[in-house]
Amino acid sequence: MTTATKTQGNRKDADLAAEIEGLRKDFEALAERFTTISDAGVRSARDYTREKAAAALDKGEGVYSELSARTSELEQQAADQIRRHPLQALGIAAGVGFLAALLTRRR
């Protein structure tokens, strides 16, 4: 091989090394960009989940409050009816007990 051929070969090797280094830097930049994008996506998903969980909790608390109030109201109505008609309430309770006993004996 001549000196010119060796110099040309070294230049090609240097050019190839420079191209590879440029590609490596480009890949690193792309990897960093993807990491940034994925981190932003994870943060967005986490924030969305937190917002939805908070909204569901608020809604659940509202439903629980309504049910609790309605249950208290029904309990008060039942107590009032029992006070007004104690014998009728006793008869209904005895009938329900009798039916429950019949149903459990047949099984």
Rank of each mutant, 00 (worst) to 15 (best):
8 Q>K: 15
96 V>E: 00
66 E>V: 11
79 A>S: 12
87 L>P: 00
93 A>D: 01
35 T>N: 10
7 T>N: 07
17 A>R: 10
41 G>D: 08
77 Q>C: 03
60 G>A: 11
34 F>Y: 15
43 R>Y: 05
47 D>T: 15
86 P>H: 03
105 R>K: 14
48 Y>N: 08
103 L>S: 08
5 T>D: 08
51 E>L: 09
91 G>H: 10
49 T>L: 13
106 R>D: 02
44 S>E: 13
50 R>I: 14
32 E>S: 12
7 T>F: 06
51 E>C: 02
86 P>T: 02
98 F>W: 11
74 L>T: 07
22 G>M: 06
53 A>S: 08
61 E>I: 01
74 L>D: 03
14 A>L: 11
82 I>C: 01
95 G>I: 01
11 R>Y: 09
77 Q>N: 07
17 A>G: 05
61 E>K: 01
14 A>W: 08
16 L>P: 00
79 A>K: 14
23 L>T: 07
36 T>C: 05
60 G>D: 01
25 K>E: 05
23 L>Q: 07
69 A>L: 14
13 D>A: 15
79 A>L: 12
81 Q>W: 13
63 V>N: 03
57 L>K: 06
69 A>Q: 14
84 R>E: 14
89 A>W: 00
1 M>W: 05
4 A>K: 12
30 L>W: 07
10 N>I: 14
18 A>M: 09
55 A>S: 05
70 R>E: 13
8 Q>Y: 09
15 D>Y: 08
3 T>E: 07
87 L>K: 13
33 R>N: 10
92 I>K: 07
68 S>A: 09
24 R>S: 08
26 D>N: 10
88 Q>I: 14
88 Q>E: 13
44 S>Q: 13
59 K>G: 00
66 E>S: 13
71 T>P: 00
23 L>K: 12
78 A>P: 00
60 G>N: 06
31 A>C: 13
6 K>F: 06
84 R>S: 14
15 D>W: 04
94 A>I: 01
13 D>E: 14
32 E>G: 05
33 R>K: 15
21 E>A: 15
22 G>Y: 04
83 R>D: 10
53 A>R: 08
11 R>W: 06
58 D>N: 12
43 R>Q: 14
43 R>C: 04
78 A>N: 07
29 A>M: 06
77 Q>P: 00
53 A>H: 06
20 I>R: 09
47 D>F: 04
59 K>T: 02
101 A>G: 03
70 R>A: 13
20 I>M: 08
34 F>C: 07
1 M>R: 06
30 L>C: 06
42 V>A: 10
24 R>F: 05
79 A>G: 03
87 L>A: 12
23 L>M: 11
51 E>I: 13
83 R>V: 12
22 G>C: 04
22 G>N: 12
103 L>N: 04
61 E>A: 02
61 E>Y: 01
94 A>Y: 01
85 H>C: 03
84 R>L: 14
37 I>A: 09
66 E>K: 12
82 I>D: 00
6 K>Q: 10
48 Y>H: 11
20 I>K: 13
47 D>Y: 04
91 G>W: 06
12 K>H: 11
102 L>S: 03
98 F>P: 00
33 R>I: 10
107 R>N: 03
9 G>H: 11
55 A>L: 04
46 R>M: 11
26 D>S: 12
1 M>Q: 03
30 L>N: 10
28 E>N: 15
55 A>H: 02
58 D>M: 07
20 I>V: 15
68 S>F: 09
